[in-house]
């Protein structure tokens, strides 16, 4: 019997993460619920005027998406660290880079993708023009991928600490800022009737860079956390 191929192993890891999430569906629903609740905060804070809401909608939606991604990234490795699964993953013969990529990919599917797909609903509640919806979904798909990958670095570095929750935001929020800039700019451009292509292209480039580099840092962070 020989070792499974790398893609097969990674797919298996993704499937395991998805199965774990599906068996505890609140884990998928909580970020979406958080998104919905914070959306409701903005009209309460800014006033219900549809025009002013529409002018803030792009930025608001993106900031909420960023925050809900941030809140979930603390949990990416925590369960597996606590029960010893992470040690076993580090000792597996497969390169950690790809295992980490599978982990973060699963996190992206569970939080970023589901959030991006449901975001048009909330966009309508905030009066975002209809023509900006495709740009919103596309920018959230790409941007949440970058955020999951970068968030993985923070999660890996803080997973061994008892109180990692607040710290991880301090570590990775500055790294989220470029994503926020281009993500909200894409939506705003589309809302004003301009093409959102350039901003989306830059988000795509960030996504590629993050896929190449973030798992390296995450793997290094996990080794440090397991060692500490």
């Amino acid at each position: 019997m020989s070792a499974p191929s790398l893609p097969a192993f990674c797919l298996r890891l993704v499937r395991r993460q998805l199965v774990l999430a599906v068996r505890r569906p609140v884990e998928i629903l909580n970020p979406l619920l958080f998104f919905a609740m914070v959306v409701a905060l903005f009209p309460l804070g800014l006033g219900p005027d549809p025009k002013s809401l529409a002018s803030f909608a792009a930025g608001t939606l993106w900031i909420i998406a960023l925050l809900s991604n941030l809140l979930t990234s603390d949990t990416i490795f925590r369960g597996d660290y606590d029960d010893g699964s992470l040690e076993q993953l580090l000792l597996a013969p497969q390169p950690l880079y790809f295992s980490v990529l599978a982990y973060l990919g699963a996190h992206w599917l569970l939080t970023g993708v589901s959030l991006a797909l449901i975001s048009p609903l909330f966009a309508l509640m905030l009066n975002l023009p209809l023509e900006a919806l495709p740009a919103l979904v596309a920018s959230l798909l790409l941007g949440s991928g970058v955020m999951s990958l970068v968030g993985g670095v923070g999660a890996a570095l803080t997973v061994g600490l008892k109180r990692g929750g607040m710290l991880i935001s301090l570590l990775i929020l500055p790294l989220y800022m470029p994503v926020l800039i281009f993500g909200s700019a894409a939506v705003r451009a589309a809302a004003q009737g301009f093409p959102a292509g350039p901003q989306l292209a830059i988000l795509g480039a960030m996504f590629c860079l993050a896929i190449a580099l973030a798992p390296l840092a995450t793997a290094a962070g996990l080794r440090i956390s397991i060692d500490a």
Partner: peptide, 26 residues
């Protein structure tokens, strides 16, 4: 190690299958 690496939401069969997944498909 000290921790058995058993996921509460998975069955023993699924847990064990994952434990050995890196080595071979048994």
């Amino acid at each position: 190690g000290h921790q058995p690496a058993v996921k509460a939401m998975l069955t023993p069969r699924e847990n064990l299958a994952w434990h050995v997944a890196g080595e071979a498909d048994f």
